[in-house]
């Protein structure tokens, strides 16, 4: 197990390096640069600005400079917010996205699994039907519609929640619901299907034949195995959710990280593009690694040696 983890960590580092390199190449081949502006710059200004931000170095020199700095955890200075380091911007914005992300992840996992199990046990009964209709809605309604609708009813019409920003716990209700809807519905469907399938297995029949109570059969024998596909899904999902959603954060005016993913590319904010990519890939890689390790404990068929 220990060796497996070491191996995986090494491959994770290589993966991140690969992502970085690819991002760097793609980014440098995007037309335009961080200082493209409506007012045409004279060649002198352009040269002066480039020199100031070290963009006048050839690409390979900049590449190694970036690598060296990233190894030290320094993402450099943002071109889009003068004087602010990428580290600082992420540090300020991440807690907002993270708070929403953690709350949403817990909601998705707990409620999603409960609804899924409920549905599976009451297969084709009214409870199941209602849950599945809700799930279809959750998957199909775009999150921005949900977000805008939430604001309209609960803020504008009822005045229960604030109209924008991220100060009190009330500010987070809307974003958490809007960001959860899709994954919640997905997890519910996933755990329903999976549990139904597991319940038809021979070993469940055996368990029932042994005279175990239905409760023990479900909780001890069926549930654990039915969660394997759910675990596969939620690993990368958590990584995606805690790093922020562009749309949701924009609608609720949350000063989180979601915006960076889009604006940095639009603005050709090179340092931010690199910083945010590395940050995000570290999350995804760790999440996937943990999922793989968790498999060992919930699925006895899997062994890493």
């Amino acid at each position: 197990m220990g060796r497996y983890i070491v191996k995986r960590v090494i491959s994770a580092v290589i993966t991140i390096w690969f992502i970085m390199t690819l991002t760097f190449i793609l980014m440098n081949n995007l037309p335009g640069d961080p200082f493209t502006s409506e007012r045409q710059q004279s060649e002198e200004i352009k040269a002066a600005v480039y020199a100031k931000y070290g963009l006048d170095d050839p690409a390979h020199i900049r590449y190694f400079k970036y690598l060296r700095n990233y190894a030290k955890g320094d993402f450099g200075v943002s071109f889009q917010e003068l004087g602010m380091t990428v580290n600082h911007l992420i540090k300020v914005a991440f807690p907002y996205s993270m708070k929403i992300g953690i709350a949403a992840s817990i909601l998705i996992i707990v409620l999603g699994v409960i609804l899924g199990v409920l549905s599976a046990l009451k297969q084709n009964k009214p409870t199941d039907r209602i849950v599945m209709i809700l799930c279809t809605l959750g998957v199909t309604i775009p999150s921005f519609v949900l977000a805008t609708g939430f604001l309209y009813f609960f803020s504008r019409k009822l005045g229960w929640v604030p109209s924008y920003g991220a100060g009190t716990w009330k500010h987070y209700i809307g974003p958490v619901i809007a960001i959860s809807a899709f994954s919640l519905a997905f997890v519910a469907r996933l755990s329903r299907t999976s549990l139904i399938e597991v319940l038809q297995q021979d070993y469940i029949r055996t368990a029932r034949a042994k005279g175990l109570s239905e409760r023990t059969v479900i909780l001890k024998h069926a549930l654990k195995n039915s969660l394997i596909p759910v675990v596969t899904y939620i690993g990368p999902m958590i990584a995606g959710i805690v790093t922020g959603s562009f749309v949701i954060e924009k609608v609720f005016a949350i000063p989180g990280m979601g915006d960076f993913f889009v604006s940095s590319i639009q603005n050709r904010d090179y340092t931010m593009i690199m910083g945010i990519t590395v940050f995000y890939s570290i999350f995804v890689v760790i999440a996937i690694l943990l999922v793989d390790i968790i498999y060992v404990f919930i699925d006895p068929r899997i062994k890493y040696d």
Binding site: G73, F75, T85, V86, N87, H88, I90, K91, F94, P95, M98, G101, I102, G235, I238, V242, F279, I282, F283, I286, A287, L290, I293, I294, F297, I298
Partner: peptide, 26 residues
């Protein structure tokens, strides 16, 4: 032991949410 370890891993998973934070602390 396995149970404890899986609980530990779930906790670890949640902890990674804050690992990112440590990385960008100046």
């Amino acid at each position: 032991f396995k149970k404890l370890l899986s609980v530990f891993l779930v906790v670890m998973m949640l902890m990674t949410l804050s690992v990112g934070c440590a990385k960008d602390n100046d």
